[in-house]
């Protein structure tokens, strides 16, 4: 077995453990490349059965249009149950990424996720988080427990020995499960190539209308994009290393329009992938840990 085989077998083992032991699991689906890999693994893990749980997309309403059409195409193709959750209250209040900064992320992502998990009563939620993404994630267990307020307590994590996962919880508590904890960005790309997994075309370089903001190239995906004075969208050949809300996702100039091209660029990359995600920078180095304590995935 090579190291991708080992990582694949580990992820499948974890998914099957959850399906066999947790009362009401769900798989978070963010439409990104990690979600595409997670979906692919779930289809393999339970084959010939369909994954025995639904998928949940928390929609902030500010996703790239191409992401939403990709989501709908994929759920149709594989016949999986795709739930969409939007924080209606936040939407009604007009919460948006331009005026509300980190409050936007809290209300439309963190709060929306909590509301969705409570509404459906999910006891375990799969996420595509990887330990190589960010320092506080590097210390999180594969099975990560949330109290009744969905908060994470990093000082009180259950010891995780061998492959023996303790999934006992009380009513109201829940588990976040990260089957691809041990994958790196490079593993993800190599696996996508090996398994021929479909991903959103935004990952490939193409001419797109962008403006430059604080060193990030932001794509003008629809007419809700607010241009600052003097900003004029220009067409550049860009691709995205991570996908989220288009006003918060920085693209990089690139010629990589094939998987091989992306893998080559990733191998020689000079910055880690989260730098192109604008939200991480609010609040300094420890911002992700703070958000996780508050219930962010």
């Amino acid at each position: 077995m090579n190291h991708l085989d080992e990582l694949e077998a580990e992820a499948i083992y974890i998914m099957r453990e959850v399906a066999a032991q947790c009362e009401k699991p769900v798989m978070l689906y963010s439409i990104g490349k990690d979600s595409s890999v997670m979906l692919h693994l779930a289809l393999k893990a339970f084959y010939p059965e369909k994954p025995p749980f639904p998928f949940l997309h928390v929609n902030t309403t500010w996703k790239f249009q191409e992401m939403i059409s990709f989501r709908d195409k994929v759920s149709e193709k594989y016949g999986i149950e795709m739930l969409e959750y939007i924080n209606k209250e936040g939407l009604a209040q007009g919460i948006n990424p331009f005026d509300h900064g980190s409050a936007y992320t809290d209300i439309m992502k963190t709060q929306a996720l909590k509301q969705a998990l409570n509404q459906y009563g999910f006891t375990a939620a799969f996420g595509g988080g990887r330990r190589d993404e960010e320092k506080s994630r590097a210390k999180e267990r594969i099975f990560s427990f949330r109290n009744f307020e969905q908060a994470w307590d990093p000082k009180n994590q259950r010891p995780e020995m061998w492959k023996l996962f303790n999934t006992e919880i009380y009513k109201g508590e829940s588990i976040r499960v990260f089957p691809i904890s041990n994958w790196t960005e490079k593993d993800i790309w190599q696996y996508i190539k090996r398994e021929n997994i479909e991903i959103v075309p935004l990952y490939f370089a193409a001419p797109r209308p962008v403006v430059e903001r604080e060193g990030n190239l932001i794509m003008v995906d629809d007419d809700r994009m607010r241009l600052k004075e003097g900003e004029e969208p220009v067409i550049k050949k860009v691709r995205f290393r991570t996908l989220g809300c288009y006003p918060l996702s920085g693209g990089v100039e690139s010629e990589a329009d094939t998987l091989d091209g992306i893998i080559r660029e990733t191998l020689s990359a000079v910055s880690s992938e989260r730098t192109s995600r604008v939200i991480d920078k609010d609040g300094g180095a420890a911002s992700m840990e703070k958000r996780k304590r508050e219930g962010y995935f």
Binding site: K135, A138, K139
Partner: peptide, 16 residues
């Protein structure tokens, strides 16, 4: 990585 560790200057949990 964890805030508590930076404060205390020790490693309290496994980092991968």
């Amino acid at each position: 990585g964890l805030m508590a560790e930076r404060e205390q200057g020790i490693t309290i949990d496994v980092a991968y």
